[in-house]
Design a protein around this nucleic acid. Structure first.
Length: 880
RNA sequence: GGGCGUUUAGCUCAGUUGGUAGAGCGCUUCCCUUACAAGGAAGAUGUCGGGAGUUCGAGCCUCUCAACGCCCACCA
């Protein structure tokens, strides 16, 4: 027996969500079975930082993945969604260091080992926090398979990959200019460097010639690096400096002698056409220096301070680079070396993590040679093994891949996968191996790997790699889809593709589904420092998880536009949840005596057939749109169907049909069936409320829970198109009648009578729906007229299809009002007709457009004209 | 410097092979009709950024201009 008492009058989202989520967890519905005969569907979560707090971006990303997961689970796939977290090297180390600082300590006070202990402790305490928060999002990932990018398995995978790449010659160690963050005190990769336009200066400094009068004037934005100069370069064809090439100049303030060289790198038109060369602190200068065999001189240290070395005058040593700049400029000016200062706008590299200005620094680091690896990664996208959605991101991806540069993977951190290179304590000989060949004699490299190195292995390290014979690997790798934002295509997606192809021979996923980023209502990025964040947990507390999910989903466009949100937008989802709840309560209240038998097709009314037709169409669209990642569209389709068709019309009509003992039972079955199907369709987006109601509905089927119930499938044999079209006319009639009532201020309590002048199909149709007209338009008597003569003269009128509906109003009617109303209608008809006539009168349209379209257009015009004529007749009649 | 995105109703945005524009919010009027006022009913609102072109027909395709946003590159 169905029991509405299970459903309280007011929907309590928090209570329901908690209860339902516990039900799923207890029933182990999220757990995948690698031995299942069903086809696999798998995906891995983009692992949130272990330091992280759940934000709206996660909420969106997780919701979309959950929708895909739930849909496929219901659609008959063995579905696995692997959760996990990222050890997030720099970010986590920074958090723990901050904590230490509060205690007045630094990591160096603890030492590496002790510090790692602390960090592990911290990590283990927080590791599950963000995934626990994800529960509030209703996600159905398999926690029994939860992973961490720094766990034992992932560490094995990292070592395996590093050693193999090294052995293939694809990992090398060398001294190059890298992006150095003086605050993190580590190298970072190119893509971790962000450029900002800053208002700076261009200083023109005179370098005097040695042993002769005269000087060469150079322009620089970084005077503090001058002590690291090893040459002054000019363009070989620059006439101006032709005689100076080969001569020697002295660095101001120190007098160190450096040559003037010629190199094509120099732009004659910029600044003075002469440039100082500082190979240790500028990537271009480094290249120039190499070409001319000039030994780099370091003058800035790892902290961004002037180095304590002979080249740097004592007074500047240890000074911060910017203080030193000021001091040096002052001294240059005082000693008349400074010729001019010009304002100059330029781009300055910043550390993505801490926004500290990057110091290009020559240092010894580990790199991955990307060009050879990129080949296959490019091919896989070009030949369609991997598809981006939306497609346009393929261009970005390919552009980056085709111009890819080597990846600096070493970080001067303690928290992370330590580079598996070992140095002989005596000879310095280096061995790259998974394990230390002899801990007594060898010491491991002190650097760690870029966090993204281990995330790049995620789709297969989580499946058991380097073992590839595990059940999970065999069943679920490669994964089906990767869902993420466009901001980490280079950081993460590209690397997973590269590594996946190299180490498993397969693309790690066939589809990359890219969604937009969440922004605030002004379109700005959300950030804690701006104070414009919206906390998903707070939204869930206020509106409910399903409301959050529905709203976010509905805002997803196929083009992957960024999503602007504000607190109020979640009312949209909340209201929909409320609607589902109340409609379901109504249905449950009216199911007394219903059985589990099939709907009796012989007893279907026109309204039943209409809603079945519409449901079937919606089922088709829902399946298609999910398969095609048009998930926002799915939300809209389901909202429209459930609210505007099922609730607004079908449920209202069902109220009438329930009064008729002949069709009461069948109507109950219909109500239940369409609700059941609707809940299944909506479940992937709004899992809790649908599960809760569905269980109260007690549908007889093979599943005890909606989460595992079969997803509705399109029924090709069902065809009630004719009835569906007719119902649309009925709705039009009812709406028109209501319009009349409103126009004449007829109170809802007053019933009207109706005369219908109609024939053929129309007549049959209207006869069938009289009960609907009675209730929905509050019509008392319906009289079918044989001819126009018997029409009540004092009346309001509407034309529907080929029929005239007459509402006799006697005293109620004000003729002028009705004439005006009708004229207004004619105006509208004419507005509609004008462009159609324009087309038909164009001989080119008639000759070139498809015949069906021409016929259709003509028919439409005829229909409009017929309607207009009918209305004109009414007007005549009223005036008479 | 190169590339991408956006520009549609007062606001926020949809619009899937080109067939003549929709939603939510807001607004107007009416309604506590026994699921729902977080609701129901009836409405009003757009030279689809400007210009040109292709086409019988353009919000959609081509070109161009403008504004805003993003990405990549990075000459001191």
């Amino acid at each position: 027996m169905t029991n509405v008492n299970n459903l309280p009058t007011v929907y309590d989202a928090l209570q329901t969500e908690k209860e339902i989520y516990e039900f799923w967890e207890k029933g182990e519905y999220f757990k995948a079975d690698a031995k299942s005969p069903k086809p696999p569907y798998s995906l891995v979560i983009p692992p949130p930082n272990v330091t992280g707090v759940l934000h709206m971006g996660h909420a969106l990303d997780e919701t979309l993945q959950d929708i895909l997961t739930r849909y496929h689970r219901m659609a008959g796939y063995e579905t696995l969604w692997i959760p996990g977290t990222d050890h997030a090297g720099i970010a986590t180390q920074a958090v723990v260091e901050k904590k230490l600082r509060a205690e007045g300590k630094s990591r160096f006070d603890l030492g590496r080992e002790k510090f790692l202990e602390e960090t592990w402790k911290w990590t283990n305490e927080h590791k599950s926090a963000i995934l626990d928060q994800c529960k509030r999002l209703g996600v159905s990932f398999d926690r029994t398979r939860e992973r961490f990018t720094f766990d034992e398995g992932c560490s094995q995978a990292v070592k395996e990959v590093f050693v193999k790449l090294y052995e293939k010659g694809l990992i090398y160690k060398g001294a190059y200019i890298v992006n150095w963050c003086p605050r993190c005190q580590s190298a970072i990769s190119d893509i971790e460097t962000e450029y900002e336009t800053e208002q700076g200066h261009l200083w023109e400094i005179s370098y005097p010639l040695k042993d002769e009068p005269g000087a060469i004037l150079i322009a620089t934005t970084r005077p503090e690096t001058m002590f690291g100069d090893v040459a002054i370069a000019v363009h070989p064809d620059d006439f101006k400096y032709k005689d100076l090439v080969g001569k020697t100049v002295c660095i101001p303030l120190t007098g160190k002698e450096i040559p003037i060289i010629a190199d094509e790198y120099v732009d004659r038109n910029f600044g003075t056409g002469a440039v100082k060369i500082t190979p240790a602190h500028d990537p271009n200068d480094y290249e120039v220096g190499k070409r001319h065999n000039l030994k780099p001189v370091w003058v800035i240290d790892e902290k961004g301070c002037m180095k304590d070395c002979p080249e740097v005058p004592e007074k500047y040593r240890g000074m911060d680079r910017y203080e030193a700049r000021k001091a040096i400029v002052g001294d240059l000016q005082y000693q008349k070396f400074l010729l001019s200062i010009k304002d100059h706008e330029h781009n300055v590299g910043k550390c993505q993590r801490c926004n500290t200005t990057i110091e290009p620094l020559l240092s010894e680091q580990w790199f991955v040679k990307m060009k050879p690896l990129a080949k296959e990664a490019i091919a896989a996208v070009k030949d369609g093994r991997i598809k981006f959605i939306p497609e346009r991101w393929e261009k970005d991806y390919l552009g980056w891949m085709e111009n890819i540069r080597d990846w600096c993977i070493s970080r001067q951190l303690w928290w992370g996968h330590r580079i598996p290179a070992y140095y002989n304590n005596e000879t310095g000989e280096m061995v790259v191996a998974k394990e230390n060949p002899n801990p007594e004699k060898f010491t491991q490299d002190t650097d760690c790997l870029d966090t993204w190195f281990s995330s790049g292995l995620w789709p297969f390290s989580t499946m058991g790699f380097p073992q590839t014979e595990t059940d999970d690997f065999k069943k679920f790798y490669p994964t089906s889809v990767l869902v993420t934002g466009f901001d980490i295509i280079f950081f993460w997606v590209a690397r997973m593709i590269t590594m996946g192809l190299e180490f498993t021979g397969k693309a790690p996923f066939s589809t990359v589904y890219i969604h937009g980023l969440i922004r605030d209502e002004k379109g700005q990025k959300m950030s804690k420092s701006k104070g414009n964040t919206i906390d998903p947990v707070q939204i869930i507390d206020k509106y409910g998880c399903d409301a959050l999910r529905f709203t976010l989903t509905s805002l997803c466009t196929y083009g992957g536009q960024d999503i602007k949100i504000s607190d109020e937008k979640f009312e949209y989802g909340r209201n929909f949840a409320n609607k589902i709840w109340n409609a379901s309560r109504f249905v449950l209240m009216n199911l007394d005596g219903v059985d589990d038998l099939e709907i009796d097709k012989d007893k279907l009314t026109i309204a039943d057939k209409w809603i079945l037709q519409r449901l079937n169409e919606v089922v088709k669209l829902t399946n298609e749109n999910i398969e095609n990642y048009r998930i926002g569209e799915v939300a809209h389709i389901l909202y429209d169907f459930f609210w505007n068709e099922y609730c607004d019309w079908y449920v209202e009509i069902a109220k009438i049909q329930l009064q008729d003992e002949n069709i009461k039972l069948n109507t109950q079955r219909m109500l239940k069936y369409v609700l059941d199907m609707s809940l299944r369709l909506i479940h992937p987006i709004m899992p809790h409320i649908t599960e809760k109601i569905w269980q109260a509905l007690q549908v007889k089927c093979s599943s005890d829970a909606l989460i595992k119930a079969e997803f509705p499938k399109y029924d090709e044999t069902l065809d009630y198109k004719k009835q569906a079209d007719e119902m649309k006319l009925v709705f039009e009639a009812i709406t028109s009648l209501r319009n009349v009532r409103q126009s004449f201020n007829i109170s809802p309590s007053v019933k009207i009578n109706l005369e219908i002048l109609s024939s053929g199909n129309d007549k049959e149709m209207f006869k069938e729906v009289i009960p609907y007209l009675n209730r929905l338009a509050r019509v008392e008597d319906v009289k079918f007229l044989d001819n126009a003569d018997s029409i009540s003269k004092k009346s309001a009128n509407v034309v529907v299809s080929k029929s005239k509906l007459i509402i006799p109003l006697e005293n109620l009617i004000d003729i002028d009002t009705e004439v005006a109303r009708q004229k207004n209608k004619i105006e509208k008809l004419q507005k509609e007709k004008a462009p159609l006539e324009g087309r038909v009168n164009n001989p080119n349209f008639v000759s070139k457009a498809p015949k069906e379209l021409v016929d259709e257009t003509k028919a439409k015009i005829a229909d409009l004209e017929q309607k207009q004529k009918a209305i004109e007749e009414f007007i005549e009649m009223l005036k008479a």
